[in-house]
Amino acid sequence: MENLFNLFIRNVFTENMVFAYFLGMCSFLAVSKTVKTSVGLGIAVVFVITVTVPVNWLLENYLLKAGALSWLGPAFEGVDLSFLSFLLFIAVIAAIVQLIEMVIEKTAPALYNALGIFLPLIAVNCAVLGAALFMQEREYGTIAEATVYGFGAGFGWALAIVVLAAIREKLKYSNVPVPLRGLGLAFILTGLLAIAFMGFSGIKI
C-alpha cells in the first residue's frame, strides 16, 4: 500500500486533473470568472469525486472486474463484467450529482443560480468520470487509497480553478486588448499554467 500522503500530493501537483490530463475544462473555463463561484464549484467537485471514486471502487472490486463476483459462490469465479463499467460508473455519478444539486438548491440558492447549467454538468465533467476510470486502470488495492486518490484529484481540480479565477480577477484591471478580454485570455492563461505544471512532471514521489 503506497504512502497515502505521497498519493495525495502527487495527484494535486504532478498529475493535476486540469493541467496534466486536461479533464474538466468546460466548467473550469466558464466558471472561473470570480473566486467566490470557483470556490463553490471547487468544493462541489471535490465532494462529488471523493464520494464517487470509493463507491465505484466497491462496484469495480465486488461486481465488475474479472473474478469479482466470487463472493457469491465458486460458480461465479469466471465472470467478467468490466464491459459494464462505463455505464455503471456514470450512473453512480449522475445519481450522486442529482443529490448534490437538490442539496445546494435548498441550502445555497445564490450559489445554485451562479453555477447555472454547470451544476448538472458536473455529472459529465470528464474529470469525475476520468477519476473513476483512472482508479480502475491503476487498480488501487484498498478503499483508503481510492478515497485519498479521489480527494487528491478533486482537490487538484479545485486548486486549478481557484488559481485561474484569482489571476482572472487581478487581470480585470489590466490593459488587455478588448477582443481578448475574458474567455480568450482564460484559454491563453490555462495554456501557460499547463506549461508551468509540466515542470512537475519529472518529480517522482
Binding site: 478588448v178 477582443p179 491563453i188
Partner: peptide
C-alpha cells in the same frame, strides 16, 4: 495540449475582433 489552448485563445481573439 497547452498549445491547443493558446491557439483557441487566439481564435477567440480573432472572432471577437470581427464579431464585437
Amino acid at each position: 495540449p497547452p498549445m491547443a489552448l493558446i491557439t483557441v485563445g487566439l481564435i477567440i481573439w480573432i472572432q471577437r475582433s470581427y464579431n464585437t
